[in-house]
């Protein structure tokens, strides 16, 4: 299977282990990711908060590039996914603005989790599992933009999604049902509204711990960064001691597939997940 790949800006930096694990997992599953040539930033929240034209035109350029390749476009970032889907809808409705690009809408735009949840890949994934994640208690954290608004991103279950939960179960992990699957991590508020941000991530971490989770599984670079890099800071602010590992779901896929590089991905985390994985006999 060959698809166009839109990595998004953070995969070159803070989300490096997401990119590395995606590459490894796709190799295992015979998925050929062809990076979109000369892609540009989707504009993220800053564009839609500032200028309507910019918020559509920036991702639209990428859509036009992808359509030239005639392959479905896959992105690992929930925010990029949301902006690309929003632009797709705006172009389909041909709002009065001339964006200067042609996009017929002949290709599908997918978040990489959706790609792995396609029927033809489900069996393939199960066959690749050589080291089941037995005994690992996870909560799946979908965040906002992977599922909302459902009219844009075409989510089937937006209040209680379960695609990631099913995937974790297929890898042998225990996926605990919890009520904060789609709560907000605060996004860029990490830099601009620190008190609100602390409140948001604090309640997610507290609920995960209350649910009995040993780790949180994410499918978005921003959700990951906001949780993994800020636990120490939050602990200081609240006088508590958070130490809950957070994973990209593709890292756990790679681990279950027996990938030799998994250790290097985990070494990039701020909250060290290796004691947990060693205790479970997974590393």
């Amino acid at each position: 299977m060959k698809v166009s790949f839109f990595p998004g800006c953070s995969l070159e930096g803070t989300a490096r282990e997401y990119g590395e694990s995606i590459e490894a997992v796709c190799k295992n599953l015979d998925i050929d990711l062809e990076e979109l040539p000369d892609w540009n930033c989707c504009g993220a929240s800053s564009a839609h908060c500032t200028n309507e034209f910019l918020s559509v035109a920036l991702p639209a350029r990428n859509l036009a590039l992808a359509e030239e390749s005639r392959q479905d476009l896959v992105t690992p970032c929930a925010a990029c996914f949301s902006r690309l889907k929003t632009a797709e809808k705006a172009l389909a409705e041909e709002k009065d603005i001339d964006l200067g690009v042609s996009f017929r809408g002949d290709i599908n735009i997918l978040h990489i989790l959706e790609l792995f949840c396609r029927d033809e890949l489900t069996d393939h994934i199960e066959q690749q599992v050589t080291k089941p994640l037995a005994g690992l208690k996870t909560v799946c954290y979908y965040g906002c933009l992977l599922v909302r608004p459902p009219k844009i991103v075409a989510a089937r279950h937006w209040e209680d999604p379960h695609t990631l939960d099913r995937l974790m179960t297929a890898l042998g992990a225990e996926s605990i049902h919890w009520p904060y699957k789609t709560e907000c991590c605060g996004g860029s508020m990490v830099l601009t509204n620190t008190d609100i941000f602390h409140h948001l991530i604090g309640r997610i971490l507290d609920m995960a711990i209350e649910a009995g989770a040993e780790c949180i599984v994410t499918a978005c670079p921003l959700c990951m960064a906001n949780l993994d890099t800020r636990e120490e800071e939050l602990s200081e602010a609240k006088g508590t001691n958070y130490n809950l590992p957070v994973f990209y779901f593709t890292e756990l896929m790679g681990l279950a597939f027996g990938d030799q590089d998994a250790g290097t991905w985990f070494n990039r985390h701020i909250v060290d997940p290796t004691p947990l994985l060693k205790a479970k006999g997974l590393l």
Partner: peptide, 21 residues
Amino acid sequence: KVSQFHAAFLGAIQKNGRVHE
């Protein structure tokens, strides 16, 4: 701070086409 963040973010896109964090 919020608009200042958006200005920095959009400035980064304008400069390099992508955001260098």
